[in-house]
Amino acid sequence: MTDLPIDLDNVTIAVGNATMLDRVTLTIAAGAPTVLIGPNGAGKTTLLRAAMGLVAPMRGTVTWQGRAHVPPVRRAIVFQRPTMLRRTTSANIRYALRAARIARGGHDEAIERLLAMVGLSRAADRPARRLSAGEQQRLALARALAREPDVLFLDEPTASLDPASTKAIEDIIRAVSQRGIKVVLSTHDLGEARRLAGEIVLLHRGRIVETAAASGFFESPMTDEARRFVAGELLV
């Protein structure tokens, strides 16, 4: 059973005195990638974590296909700074396969396929922690995909990567999306949002400012914040 659509209804999340999400209502449905944009501190990461089920709202509800409290079996996330387990590259993927209870008989084939997909076949036996930042990000993607998710959350997957690594990650994201996996990613890079998004969600100060199809958003933003953000002005 799929976890889509994911509905956030009037969700508020605060840490101490800081409100990270303020009465956010959003539906994440199957289809082209949804890209969360906004300045640092806008609430993009918190929204991803809430939709993944890693953080519970203080007010409001999050449901997966209408059900609350659904364990993340059909969902996967790649954090902005993913943690590599102290194992080899291939062992990291094997761990994810085991955690997802994928039948052991298919592990070797799945590891080979996933490593090829993210371009890490030659690094299979290297310690994961010794990979470069770009390679670690690709391994984290492979590890997430090992779970065979319906929806894949990516938190600023290309932040601080060079153009070649960024292109490699974006190519994988397109391939994943074409396979029917719903991709929800956050970025503050407008270029990346233009290249990948089917739908744009602009966040500012914990609130959703605008939600629109990507083409409409970039050509004719509806709100003042969106116009300024698209024009390259700083939202503070």
């Binding site: 993944m52 890693l54 364990p71 993340p72 079996v73 996967a76 996330i77 954090f79 993913p82 943690t83 387990l85 102290r86 194992r87 761990y95 994810a96 955690a99 997802a100 779970r147």
Partner: peptide, 27 residues
């Protein structure tokens, strides 16, 4: 503290988490 988010996101049950942490902290 380092692994919590990843293991939670991977839906690893508690015995598995303990085993993973002991194994990865073995050195």
């Amino acid at each position: 503290l380092e692994y919590r988010d990843e293991l939670t996101a991977m839906n690893v049950p508690w015995p598995g988490r303990v085993g993973t942490l002991i194994w990865d902290a073995r050195f």
